[in-house]
Design a protein around this nucleic acid. Structure first.
Lengths: 203, 203
DNA sequence: GCAGAACCTGACTGTTGAGTCATGTTTCAT
DNA sequence: ATGAAACATGACTCAACAGTCAGGTTCTGC
């Protein structure tokens, strides 16, 4: 009759030391999973990198899957903050779009680990992965609808548009910010933005 | 001094029986990996589903990674064929774009296994995954440049455009063809195509 | 219809790594 | 200052699998 729930998050650390250890583990996991991938990164390589004992891991996370989940949430928060700052003060939606795209590419270039972690979550915990994108899509969609109401963009299906635009960022980011680490992002962002602005049709 | 090479593909089956067995294994692997994911699908579940002995697997594939590689190539061939057929006879590039997008979404809906297999290859064999997209991008890019020369589309960076357009298909496909198995694809394809045609800017 | 090549088998081996636990150390509220 | 709660440890257990191999079956060209 107790309310014990096996999938509830583990209780947060109660002391400063505990919180520090948890963060060390999260950072180590991010580097390990980000560089070697989820399958190759074992709990023991993670604890070794964090310089804590094997068993310590299980004081803060139920499993390797659990720590990945946590990292996806962390990535979402960081990216959201980064984009919010980049967009703040844009005079209109199209300019916000421009700045956001550029900022996203720069974020990916600067945080390849987190990018990979999110991508891997797709197979480790589909629900979290889906949630990650749904959340971005929802706020993207809201932004597009508001802009449409203000007449800053043409009318259109905001839902499909939101996913399509995320797809552009995602793929262009992978190709030009992650795989190709040298190409200047300004040029890429401008080219992609031009497509988003005017499409392909001459008319 | 012999020309033995440990990473050369295994010799092809010499008899009809051998070829049949290899195909049974490929199909079983596609279903297993497509439904449970690469990590959960073991060689023994694959051989069980194919109804062959454990060791038979290693007559045709060096490892689980190897069979995944093969499946990615198969997916590439099938998708390419599907798209070529769908686009054949389109009067111009923009119409080809329209038909291609729609055909892609339909392919994803019909072949969720193959879609997942390709996505997993990203972490199992990055080179093959990258190659898969680079190949599509190259032919996409060529198509866009030809269309631009004919004046069917506005001038622009064909490379970035190719990746951006693939990104749209990829993400919209995942969201509306894979995750949401009920929504009618015609509507989605039209909405995305409208964005590709004219962009967001009112002008 | 025979020889030799091709194919098939599944029990076995060895490794890997997740998760546990008994014991020890540190923190902190009182 | 102290004791109880929180935190930390790493050797150990145990299950899961990848990959092997010695021995058996089926095919195919002649």
């Amino acid at each position: 009759m107790s309310d014990w729930n096996p999938s509830a998050p583990l209780p947060a650390p109660k002391t400063r030391r505990g919180e520090r250890t948890r963060q060390k583990l999260l950072n180590a996991a991010q580097r390990q999973i980000g560089s070697k991938g989820f399958a190759e990164a074992s709990v023991s390589t993670i604890t070794a990198e964090a310089a804590v004992g094997q068993g310590t891991f299980y004081l803060y996370f139920r499993s390797k899957e659990d720590v990945l989940r946590e990292l996806v949430l962390r990535m979402g928060r960081r990216l959201r903050r980064h984009l919010t700052l980049a967009i703040a003060g844009a005079p209109n939606r199209l300019e916000a779009e421009r700045r956001g795209l550029r900022a996203f590419l720069e974020f990916v270039r600067a945080n390849p680990d987190l990018y990979r972690v999110v991508a891997e979550s797709q197979f480790v915990d589909p629900a979290v992965f889906q949630r990650y994108y749904e959340d971005f899509a929802a706020s993207y969609r809201a932004g597009l609808m508001a802009a449409e109401a203000r007449g800053e963009i043409t009318p259109g299906d905001a839902d499909v548009r939101a996913w399509a635009l995320m797809g552009i960022s995602d793929m262009v980011g992978r190709r030009f910010a992650l795989w190709d680490r040298d190409v200047p992002l300004r040029r890429i962002a401008e080219a992609a933005h031009a497509l988003i602005l005017a499409g392909l049709s001459p008319r």
